[in-house]
Amino acid sequence: MRSPTESLAKKVVVDIAEFQESVNKGMALESQVVFQAFEQFLEHHLEPISREWDRPAVRFLRLKNEWLRDTEFLSSIHEIILHPAYLQIIGMGPVAVPLIINELQVYPDYWFWALSAITGTNPVPLDKLGDIDAMTEAWLEWWRACDLRNEPICKTAISELRRF
C-alpha cells in the first residue's frame, strides 16, 4: 500500500514526464536548463538522499540517471566506468546486481564492469568483448544460472523494484 506522499510523488513524476514531452518540441534552451534544475530540486525533496539507504532501488535509479547524464557522450570506457555514480553503484554491493540485471534486460549498456567488480566473475568470452548484445546475453545467462538471485538481499531489491 502506497503512502499518500508516495502517491503524490508518483503523480508529480508522471506529470513532469508528460509536461517535458510536450514542451521539448518548442522549448527554448534557457527554459530547458531552468526546468532541469527544477526537476532535480523536486526529485531531491520528494526523495531525500538520506532516505535512500534502506531503499536500494531508489538509490540505484538516482545514481544511474546521474551516470547516464554525465557519460552519455563519452567513448572512453575508462571515463565511463570511473564516474563517481558508477563507482557508488559498485559500492552498493550484491544488492545492486538484480537492479543492474533488470536494467540490462531493458536498456543494454556498459554495466559489465560493475557486475564483474561486485561478483568477482566475468562470464563474457574474450572474443565477444565490445559486442554489447553478446556481453548482455552472457551476463543474463550467468544470472539465470547463479544462486545469487535467491539470496534474501537480492529478493528484497527485486521486490522493491517491482513497486515502481
Partner: peptide, 12 residues
C-alpha cells in the same frame, strides 16, 4: 557499427 572499440574492456 557492431561493437565498442577501446583498448580495455572492449574490442581492440
Amino acid at each position: 557499427s557492431s561493437r565498442f572499440w577501446w583498448p580495455e574492456y572492449a574490442y581492440w
